[in-house]
Design a protein around this nucleic acid. Structure first.
Lengths: 168, 168
DNA sequence: ATGATGAGTGTTATAATATAACACTCACTT
DNA sequence: AAGTGAGTGTTATATTATAACACTCATCAT
C-alpha cells in the first residue's frame, strides 16, 4: 500500500514531492477563494507545471509543456497566467534567471530570499527574518519607500556540494 | 570662473555629477591598468554612457547612444563591453530591470544593495554591512556556496517622495 | 428578456533582450 | 615569418515579453 518510490532524479533528496505539490495547490485554491479571484483551469495548470519541480522554469518551457494539453496555448496564455500567479503571490519571478518558481509563502509575508543552485537549478526559499530586519532598517535609513524586493543568491546548494564531494 | 549651473534635470539633487563621472572613469582606468586588462575605447565609451546618469540604462539605449559616434555598433558591440565591465565590477547588471548602472564599489566588495526608484529611475548603491552580515550568516546556515548576489529593492526614493509631497 | 459590463481567453503580430558563429585585425611571441 | 590570443566586425537568429483587437460568457441593472 505504499506510494511507489519515485525515480528521484533531482528534486530535493528525501522529500515527498507529491505532498509538496498538493499542499501548494490546495493552499492556492483556498487563497483564491478567500480573495474572490479565479484560479481558472489555465492558471491552475500553469501553477501545477511550475510546481512539477523546485527548479526555476522559463515561460517558454511552460508553453511547451502545456501545449500537449492545450494545443491553442500561445505566449500570452502563459504570461497572463504568470502575471496572475505573481500578483497573488503564488509564484516568484526569479529576476536573475527570467524564470519562475513556486512560492510556499503566499499566505504569509511574500518576500523571501531565494537560494538558486547553479548546479541542480533548484531554488530554495528562505524567510531569513534577520536579513529582512536589517534590510528594513537600511531602507528606512535611506528614506526609501518599498514596492518590492528581490533577494537572489546564486551558487551551489548543500545537496550538490555534498554530491560533488562524494564523487571524489 | 564657476562651472555653469547644470540644467539639473533628474540626477541626484545637489551633486556634482561631472566629478562623479570623472572619478568613476579614473578609478576604472586605474583598476584596469592594475589588473592588466584593457579598457578599450569601446569599453570606455560604454562605461561613460552608463555613467551619464545614475539611472539604470538598457543595452539597446546604449546602442542608440553610441551609434552617432560609432556607426558600426551592433548589439554584440554593446553586450561584449557590458560583459567586460560587469566582469571587472565596474557596473552592475540590474536583474529586475534588465538594465545596467555604474558601480562605485568596484575596488572594494562589489556586492551591494540597490535601491531602484520607480519614479526617477535612479539607482542608489548601498553597502549595507548589517544586511550583508545577516545574509552571510543565513547563507552559511543553509550550507550554500555563493557565486553572486542580487539584492534589489524597487520603490520610491527619498528625493521623489519629497518632491511629490512638496507638490501637494 | 435585454443589453451593458468586465473578466478571461483566442489570436496575430511585433517589440525588446540577448547570443552564436565566423571572419578579420593587430600586437606580441617564438 | 608563422603562431597565438584579445578584441572587434558582421550576419543571423534565439529568447523573452507585450500590444492590440476580437470573442465568449457570466453577472447585473434596466
Amino acid at each position: 500500500m505504499n506510494i511507489p518510490v519515485e525515480p528521484s532524479q533531482n528534486p530535493p533528496l528525501e522529500h515527498d514531492h507529491k505532498k509538496c505539490v498538493s499542499e501548494a495547490l490546495d493552499t492556492a485554491e483556498q487563497l483564491c477563494v478567500v480573495r474572490g479571484v479565479q484560479l481558472t483551469p489555465i492558471r491552475h495548470q500553469v501553477l501545477e507545471l511550475i510546481w512539477a519541480s523546485h527548479k526555476a522554469v522559463k515561460a517558454y518551457e511552460l508553453l511547451d509543456r502545456i501545449k500537449p494539453q492545450m494545443d491553442a496555448a500561445k505566449p500570452a496564455t502563459i504570461y497572463r497566467a504568470l502575471d496572475f500567479l505573481i500578483e497573488q503571490g503564488l509564484i516568484h519571478r526569479v529576476e536573475s534567471l527570467n524564470a519562475f518558481v513556486g512560492c510556499n509563502c503566499s499566505a504569509h509575508q511574500h518576500e523571501q530570499l531565494l537560494l538558486i543552485c547553479n548546479n541542480c537549478q533548484d531554488v530554495e526559499e528562505r524567510s531569513a527574518p534577520k536579513v529582512m530586519q536589517a534590510l528594513a532598517l537600511e531602507i528606512k535609513q535611506a528614506d526609501f519607500i518599498v514596492h518590492s524586493k528581490a533577494i537572489e543568491i546564486q551558487g551551489v546548494c548543500a545537496k550538490c556540494t555534498k554530491t560533488i564531494s562524494d564523487q571524489s
